[in-house]
Design a protein around this nucleic acid. Structure first.
Length: 379
DNA sequence: AAGTCGGGGGA
DNA sequence: TCCCCAGACTT
């Protein structure tokens, strides 16, 4: 285990905080570093402050700051308090999350608000151990909320911190590997200051440095406050760290979207909710047949599917458009088909709906589904 | 330990 | 193109 000298630790802390006080971005969820100590303490017991931290940290998981900002504003305009979020429908929460990705985060955040209301009297827990019990809150997010919202001396380890620590301490083993990850957590814990040393600002200063200076490629070492302490800089190749394990390539699949037009209502199509697990969980869609291999589309197959699963009889199918969509592990080719039903069932199954394309704003759709509906409306 | 879960930014 | 992003959770 790496045990930095106490002088190194205090140098890192003081240099980072001094740099942060001068260079911190003014982000909408951030407690300004220029707040007085009295303001800071009142912020620590003020629920809106912690609620803002909770929402922002959920949105920021695997998502860049610039992407999150407009979503954060819209979310707080709609749900200004933890209580208002807890009382909302999941569908409304998912609609606000539309386009941001990793939709399970939205469902976890909503569930989180309800647990805090019913089991914590509406007060967001102050400690890492209690935060860890909440849905969607792992080691990083628990440390972030405890330190940023409540000024607890809790460590964090995200992509930024991993990059900075691997460069400063010249960790040349793959940082995905469990023992190395433990090593990094140990370093983060040794480095985070006590409550009197502004642990929340310190943690944010690490991430800020990673975002603004110590970037993955072409790090700006010339303006880095930690340059003197950085072993990778001394070695001359900071951009070669950290080392990560190779990732598997996305697998090609084909999804067939069925645009089923209502026989009498103009511009109106059939929508259904996706299952609560897997890709785009609980989001809505035009019925979509997911094929795992590149098999030629046969219209008979689609007609059978429509009849069996949707109880809709049809004969005409026309191919409208094909487009590709990338996720982390899939390359999906979407085939959009227009269906003209000859008869539709009188009773609607739960979580399905006929919707006019002009009244879709309350149905949460994934990006490719939104793209498909856009194709239909310009027809 | 390896997969799953989105979508976009930047070189 | 490829890699990465204020990760969490399941298998």
């Amino acid at each position: 285990m790496i045990k930095p000298h106490s002088k190194t630790i205090s140098a890192i802390r003081s240099r980072l905080l001094a740099w942060y006080d001068q260079n911190a971005r003014d982000l909408p969820w951030r407690t300004p570093p220029y707040l007085s100590e009295i303001d800071r303490q009142s912020q620590a017991t003020n629920l809106p402050g912690a609620y803002h931290t909770l929402v922002s940290e959920a949105m920021l998981q695997q998502t860049q700051v610039a992407t999150v900002i407009p979503y954060f504003h819209r979310f707080l305009d709609t749900f200004p308090t933890l209580k208002s979020l807890a009382q909302a429908d999941e569908q409304q929460v998912l609609t606000l999350w539309q386009g941001l990705g990793y939709y399970r985060r939205a469902r976890n955040l909503h569930a989180c608000a309800n647990v805090i209301m019913s089991e914590h009297q509406g007060q967001i827990p102050h400690t890492v151990d209690e935060l860890l019990k909440l849905p969607g809150i792992g080691q990083y997010t628990a440390g972030a909320i405890a330190s940023i919202a409540f000024n607890q001396p809790a460590p964090i380890l995200d992509g930024n911190v991993i990059r900075i620590l691997s460069r400063i301490f010249f960790i040349t083993d793959p940082t995905d590997h469990t023992p190395i990850k433990k090593q990094l957590w140990s370093l983060a814990e040794q480095l985070v200051p006590e409550t009197s040393g502004r642990p929340g600002d310190y943690n944010q200063s690490m991430m800020e440095l990673g975002a603004l200076i110590c970037s993955p490629r072409n790090p700006n070492c010339n303006t880095c406050p930690l340059q003197k302490l950085c072993k990778a800089y001394a070695d001359g190749s900071p951009e070669s760290l950290p080392i990560t394990l190779p990732k598997s390539k996305p697998r090609p699949v084909h999804h067939h979207i069925l645009a089923i037009q209502h026989p009498s209502k103009p511009n109106t199509y059939f929508f259904e909710q996706r299952p609560s697990t897997g890709l785009w969980s609980n989001m809505y869609q035009l019925p979509t047949l997911e094929l795992n291999h590149n098999k030629d589309f046969e219209s008979d197959q689609l007609i059978t599917y429509i009849q069996k699963h949707l109880k809709i009889k049809t004969k005409n199918i026309t191919q409208l458009k094909t487009f590709k969509h990338q996720t982390t592990h899939l390359t999906i080719t979407f085939h959009l088909h227009a269906i003209t039903p000859t008869s539709i069932p009188t009773k609607l199954k739960p979580n399905t709906a006929w919707r006019s394309l002009t009244k879709l704003t309350d149905l949460p759709l994934s990006n490719p589904q939104q793209q498909a509906t856009k194709c239909l409306s310009v027809q």
